[in-house]
Amino acid sequence: MDFVTLGGNLLGTIPLGDIVLYVTPFNLFLFAVLLGFTLLIALSKPETQVEATMHNLNNTEVKVGPKEFKQRRFLSIICGIASAGAMITGDLFNFTLFMALVGILNIGIVSAVKQTTVLNSAFNYGLIAMMCSLPLFGGAAIILAATGTLSLAVLSQMPASPMVVFGAVLMLIGILGESGVAPFFASKAEMFRTAGSPFIVIIHLSSLFIIVRAVEILLLVLW
């Protein structure tokens, strides 16, 4: 299948050597939303979380300190740009690299918090992200071996052999793990129990949009 049946008319391409980025209305929508959110993240300040304290009647306020704020904002902006790039890339391996970048940034955004439960889930998610390098890169390499190309424009015109299906299944499990959907939800969900909602939102946004984009890519590869 080609781009047009999936995402609408091809609006244009950005050639960077072998890696050709392409834009259809579908990609453009995702890209624009991500960039818009990134802009909002760059502008906004984090909230103050109010929590009840144990054993007495006071409230505690959880805030993001000034040092953490700078680091997190930087990482979130990069994360937004990286996921925006993943939305329009036209190369299989390039996409997996974008995913790896988003994964490590997701860990980085919550790495500076004090809550040990959050760090615990960040660590466990990190383990998954590391393991994901095998299914992601390996899946892309298997598809490369079977078809001789990594460009989505060419892959979309090719029929799927069992080997391509296997590579796509590998990639799918990599994507599931990296973006933390069920049944692997627990590791990622705990990461959201910390202050700094503008930065936390990009973690969720990037993983959701990467699923959306990944399914488009898998459809392109398989049919």
Binding site: L6, G7, G8, P25, F26, F29, L30, V33, F37, E47, T48, Q49, V50, E51, A52, F192, A195, S197, P198, I200, V201, H204, L205, L208, F209, I211, V212, E216
Partner: peptide, 27 residues
């Protein structure tokens, strides 16, 4: 238009649900 865009809309809806919850600071 394309169903995929509607799916993207739905994904953004989830984000909104997420963020309007967390940006208020309420438990």
């Amino acid at each position: 238009d394309s169903l995929l865009i509607l799916f993207g809309v739905y994904a953004v809806y989830k984000i909104v649900e997420h963020n309007s919850g967390s940006s208020s600071g309420s438990p």
